[in-house]
């Protein structure tokens, strides 16, 4: 039984949370949905009558292509972040406790110097006249400078560099919770290292992995300035297309519709992923 004095806290929390989200998420998004079914207007951005023209425009295969290419780059980014971040978070959790906070801070400090500035710093490294090419050439490893800047690879490097902590931090949060006695128990029960990893560590850290994947994959679709700076504006992300629709082409209904469809598509992907997980018997998270 719940006693009466527990109720006020619960009520206060729920009011705060719902209030915030309804006011600052629900209402603005209602406005977006509204904009997407209105007519483009050069004078006032949007106007009546209502119609679905914007959605019809989206059927152009051009946009599917941009979406898939963007998804591919985001997925590669996520995969690389996971491959780097998972052992990183694990190693971090093994360091003496009093050093962990310091190390976490050291991880995040580079990110307090503006991301745009850091993206430009990457450019200084990757350019034909850049530091990496100069270093490789003076070491005699290459004869001709490599073309790294303004390629798909450069975009992915940039995305990984900007998003890595978003993978590491949630992973660290779960690894920190992974108790040594569980691992020892597994070991005592005769499980080898690999078996312990697959049957104990992976399932226990899965929530962190999924959280990290979401925090990297979703923003990676929209970081439009990375392709602009490192991709030479040629490897476009969905974020670039939508931004252009709002600012350059001033087609707000189309931009809004594209944003809604993008959200739905990503939601569908996440949902399908969860379903497939359930079907093979793992517990959905």
């Amino acid at each position: 039984m719940r006693s009466a004095r527990q109720q006020p806290f619960r009520t206060a929390v729920l009011i705060l949370v719902w209030g915030w989200l309804l006011f600052l998420v629900f209402t603005p998004n209602l406005l977006v949905v509204g904009a997407s079914v209105m007519t483009r207007d050069p004078g006032t951005f949007i106007s009546l009558p209502l119609n679905l023209d914007a959605y019809r425009q989206l059927l152009n295969p051009l946009y599917l292509e941009v979406f898939l290419h963007s998804l591919y780059m985001a997925a590669m980014t996520t995969l690389i972040c996971l491959l780097i971040g998972y052992p990183f978070a694990w190693s971090l959790s093994k360091v003496a406790r009093q050093h962990q906070v310091l190390l976490i801070f050291l991880l995040i400090v580079p990110f307090w110097t503006n991301s745009l500035v850091r993206t430009y710093a990457l450019k200084l490294i990757l350019a034909t006249n850049g530091l990496l090419n100069s270093a490789l050439m003076s070491l005699g490893l290459i004869e001709e400078p490599l073309q790294m800047l303004y390629t798909e690879g450069a975009v992915i490097i940039g995305l990984v560099y900007l998003l890595l902590p978003f993978m590491i931090l949630p992973l660290y949060a779960v690894f920190d919770d992974l108790r040594d006695d569980l691992l020892r128990a597994s070991h005592d029960l005769g499980a080898g290292r690999f078996s312990t990893f697959i049957h104990v560590i992976v399932p226990l850290t899965l929530p962190g992995v999924l959280a990290g994947v979401m925090l990297v994959l979703l923003p990676a679709m929209g970081l439009f300035f990375v392709p602009d700076i490192l991709g030479g504006s040629r490897n476009l992300l969905v974020g670039n297309v939508i931004k252009n629709q709002f600012l350059d082409a001033r087609n707000w209904p189309f931009g809004a519709a594209a944003s809604i469809v993008l959200t739905l598509a990503m939601a569908f992907l996440m949902f399908a992923h969860r379903l497939s997980k359930r079907r093979i018997g793992e517990e959905g998270v």
Binding site: N29, G239, I242, L247, A256
Partner: peptide
């Protein structure tokens, strides 16, 4: 919450400004 994460920044920006 998912929508906030997924919304391209420009959409978030303009819809919040409108609000």
């Amino acid at each position: 919450l998912f929508i906030v994460m997924m919304s391209p920044e420009i959409v978030l920006a303009i819809s919040l400004l409108a609000l």
